[in-house]
Design a binder for these strands. Structure first.
Lengths: 212, 212, 212, 212
DNA sequence: TATGAATGAGTATTCATTCAT
DNA sequence: GATGAATGAATACTCATTCAT
């Protein structure tokens, strides 16, 4: 065992193994990765994994913790109250994009992959990541509508749209769309602009949102 | 049995097994499903699967065929040329939603799950499904821009947005967001309205898309 | 696969594997024996074991079946009704000894070993082997007592004694007592004689069993 | 701490760990019990076990020591020389039964279980427990025969019978025969009576022991 | 000496795939 | 072609043992 590892406390060790697991899972998928793969990548023994995690599935769940730590708090950050709508939406996209570090994208790759076919993981992902993303900004949007600074759209629907764009573009990136990957840093600005201004030029008869 | 009929039988059998595979994969995931599960569901023997498909992975690839058959051709259908922008966008969303039969959603659940962690499947999915979706409507949108009926947005970016919303909402549905599941049939209309009109009321200073 | 094995039906195959398991378990103990050991001994693959038996424990339970087949029926055989006490007891011992083929002794070695520390196996052994041995001869002994041909001993106690001697001598043999192993075939006669006649010579004041 | 006390502590610790091991082995079996189980039960660390015992097997062997201490010395106790046969046999059974404390039964459960399938343990058990039990009373019985107070039976055979009954009834108890468990304290008296008096009433033609 | 975290060899079981019938 | 029993490689997990502190 290297001195570097030795001086690490259990929690650091745990984090170290988790990082290795994220890399390996992202590269081979949850099922394609063996405990041996992960322990090798982390530079520990097979058995050590099991002193830190209950089992292989716990490694997957453990990957969600940093997602909370880094992802969730951000949207909670009180966005400047007298921001205008444009500023708010742009800031929302920007914040969400900021959470998407390479490691977070690796986590999402694996967690989304498994959540699609594992109901229990799905519930956890829903409760810890998606539901916050779908509800926290509700208050702010409601205020904007009340103040007439936003078209009177259905807020939950709006949030599905906003989160949908975010999630969809993450998928496009994870699925390897070259254009999305290449212009990744511009995407939040582009998407907020798209959503804010709409497609139809003013006066072009674009009164299309009085449905519903 | 004539060779033609024999061959036809093979095709029908293949389709039959594929349908069973879709159900089983969707329920247990690709890795959680065994050949035995699938052969039981299809009412054939284990060995029979291997006369119809090279191996387990070929079942997964086979699931993409009907996606082509039903999904891809649709966007190709020449949308009425003198449709206005609103009509075109709405029709685009409607068509894509129409492809999302329960079976297609099952296919997407499994294929997206695997594509996230399997580069080779990713490429195939990209080539056969996503690239068409991201490029075919380009021409029409370009014409709209040229005619001044659409804000002068970057077309590829626009298509990432449109496809992103679509993909993101599919994800929200597959991940079990109750609101998305419940109002599934209203979503295309809501999303096209959102995209077309934008969030900012006319005259509210929403000139936000001159960035880039 | 050898032609010899090939022609065996599943039930014969099962028996074949069970025989191998008995040999291996007897040699290494239940826990010391690996599935690989058994499959090698039987000349089949690891996986084949699991098409014939639920799991390793089922191999152990399966070993009890022949014990029933060969062991239980014997004591049931209607022993000649007008046999005298001496004849009956001798016949009882002889029959029980007959069941103790080398293979049965191997089975007993393993089953007794595990039953001592596994309550569930204990129950099964009790129900299928010991209880019959402890109760079936009750009727005959009762008749002997009623006819005054047997001292008025407590029948259940007597049967514990008879079965105890049997079980104890099996243990002595299994534990390797040289004398017991060497004179194994004489043991039933010796023990029935011992039990029948008692230790104290007639008239030596040996009226010791009027207690109770 | 003086060397003596330190040493004493080690001995006490050893005994303490051994007691814990007996309880755990009896409950889960030798193979079902982990070092962790035992160290937890004893309230020491895993590593501490290995300062007191060479390895797991040494714990098993260690369990035999108290069996010597309590079990073996007893039969050696010079039984009153002018005891009559009945008294001697009864005393023999009583002494053996006295050694069967609950803890001794736990030890026997585990040791017999393992000895059945482990030749090396078998030899040790034979040398330290069974051989003494099978030979020590020989002298006394020989004298009785010489004095004509005992039928002229083969002494080694007689001792197999006596020890066999003992061992067999211990097995019946350990295997959970309800009757044996319930009347456990009466068993020595019953069995000595049975052996002493025989089954056949005097004068009923029970001259059955002139075999051999 | 005691600790208990780390080690890694060992194993029951699964399951994609084959192939004799 | 169809069958399904047999194959055996692959793998998560356990636990006796060690050793740095």
């Amino acid at each position: 065992m290297s001195p570097t590892l030795r001086e690490k406390t259990a929690i650091v060790r745990r984090r170290h193994v988790l990082d290795a697991a994220i890399r390996v899972f992202a590269a081979r998928g949850y099922h394609g990765a063996t405990i041996r793969d992960i322990s090798s990548e982390a530079g520990v023994s097979d058995g050590a994994i099991y002193t830190l995690f209950e089992n292989k599935a716990a490694l997957l769940l453990g990957m969600l913790d940093p997602l909370d730590e880094r992802g969730a708090p951000e949207p909670l950050r009180p966005i400047d109250a007298d921001l205008d709508v444009q500023g708010f939406v742009r800031e929302l996209f920007r914040q969400r994009w900021q959470t998407l570090t390479p490691e977070t994208l690796d986590v999402l790759r694996v967690v989304l992959s498994e959540a699609l076919v594992d109901p229990s993981l799905r519930e956890i992902l829903m409760a810890r990541v998606l539901t916050p993303a779908l509800t926290l900004p509700e208050a702010q949007f409601s205020r904007f509508v009340a103040e007439g600074r936003l078209r009177p759209v259905d807020i939950p629907t709006l949030l599905r749209g906003v989160t949908g764009v975010f999630l969809g573009l993450v998928m496009l990136r994870l699925l390897g769309d070259p254009q999305t990957c290449q212009h990744w840093d511009d995407v939040p600005e582009q998407m907020s602009a798209l959503l804010l201004g709409g497609l139809v030029p003013d006066g072009a008869g674009g009164e299309t949102h009085d449905q519903d």
